[in-house]
């Protein structure tokens, strides 16, 4: 009987005042639930970001108070050869590694999308490299690429090639880092695989009936339907590629050996802050990187309207 009463009460339309009170209560609860995350966001992202913009305008030698110097740190970049060299290396790295990684991940996802008895095993195997720490992966690559004793060159020499001294030759060292960064492509592959498995079977079958050419299906059906995944992988890939650090510092150290071929932008920021204790300059470098990546991301999102297709969207 009591339960029946409760049902009757809850079934009645509450007054506007009670609704407002309930809404405020829900809002309070929502804010309370979100509060830990918001505090984390403010403490570890927004405040440091604002501080970085401020410190970039100071001379700050890590110990003692920062001294305001205006835009001097930004002016110093124009004459800093390491800034230009690292920017050039990083742009080249991003321009090559991002499309290459996307293409390889897509190809791998297309292969993994075929149902075989060992599909699960293959997916796990291709995801595993992502779990390896970047430093450990770099050390393994360095040993693999050792001239003379390294297995890569031994195999290449056995096939009659004249392999380079990967990590000592300025012409090949950056390519070695590109190879190293492409190796763990498990996440990108999984994202693509998720997109491929979401393509409706009837659409896929209709395409196969329309044209027997697999390329036609890939170009006109598959790729358009996974453009949201391409967009996601592209944006994340660009952000990651501009932040390449662990592989570069393990292979090239703080000077980017050989001949600064592996000197990446993040390494220059790191060494300015924590090796040379020039935190103000490092903050200015970080600020420039922030705006470059932001502009690129905005540019991609802007153009995405013309090439990304979302399900249910009408054009």
């Amino acid at each position: 009987m009591a339960a029946g009463t409760q049902i009757a009460v809850s079934g009645a339309s509450p007054s506007p005042r009670r609704r407002r009170r309930a809404g405020r209560g829900e809002a309070r609860a929502g804010v309370l639930f979100a509060l830990p995350w918001m505090i984390g966001l403010a403490t570890f992202t927004i405040i440091p970001l604002i501080l970085t913009f401020y410190i970039a305008q100071t001379k700050f030698q890590i110990v003692g108070p920062p001294k305001y110097i205006g835009l001097e740190n930004y002016e110093a970049m124009w004459t800093d050869a390491a800034f230009w060299r690292s920017a050039q290396n990083t742009l080249f790295f991003a321009a090559v590694s991002v499309p290459l990684k996307l293409a390889l991940a897509l190809g791998l996802a297309l292969l993994l999308n075929r149902a075989t008895a060992l599909s699960g095993l293959y997916r796990t195997v291709f995801y595993l490299p992502f779990l390896m720490p970047a430093v450990a992966g770099s050390v393994v690559f360095m040993l693999l690429l050792t001239p003379g004793a390294g297995p890569v060159n031994i195999i290449l020499e056995a096939f009659g090639f004249n392999p380079p001294d990967w990590l000592r030759d300025p012409d090949s060292a950056l390519w070695a880092i590109i190879m190293l960064s492409i190796w763990p492509l498990g996440v990108e592959t999984l994202v693509f695989l998720g997109g491929l498995q979401n393509i409706p079977r009837d659409v896929s079958e209709a395409a196969e009936l329309d044209s027997p050419e697999p390329w036609h299906k890939l170009w006109w059906i598959t790729l358009p339907l996974i453009t949201p995944m391409i967009l996601f992988n592209l944006v994340i890939g660009i952000i990651y590629s501009f932040q390449i650090f662990a592989q570069a510092i393990v292979i090239g150290g703080t000077t980017g050996t050989p001949a600064e071929a592996t000197l990446m932008y993040m390494v220059v920021i790191y060494r300015a802050a924590f090796r040379y204790f020039n935190v103000g300059y490092a903050a200015a470098l970080a600020t420039v990187l922030f705006f470059v990546v932001l502009l690129l991301a905005l540019l991609i999102f802007r153009t995405a309207r013309s090439w990304v297709y979302y399900e249910g969207e009408s054009r």
């Binding site: 001239p147 003379g148 004793a149």
Partner: peptide
Amino acid sequence: NLVDRSGNFLDGYPNSTTGL
């Protein structure tokens, strides 16, 4: 580079980059 491919002639420890 020829020297370094032949072994670690720089110091008394194994080379951390090449393992030689």
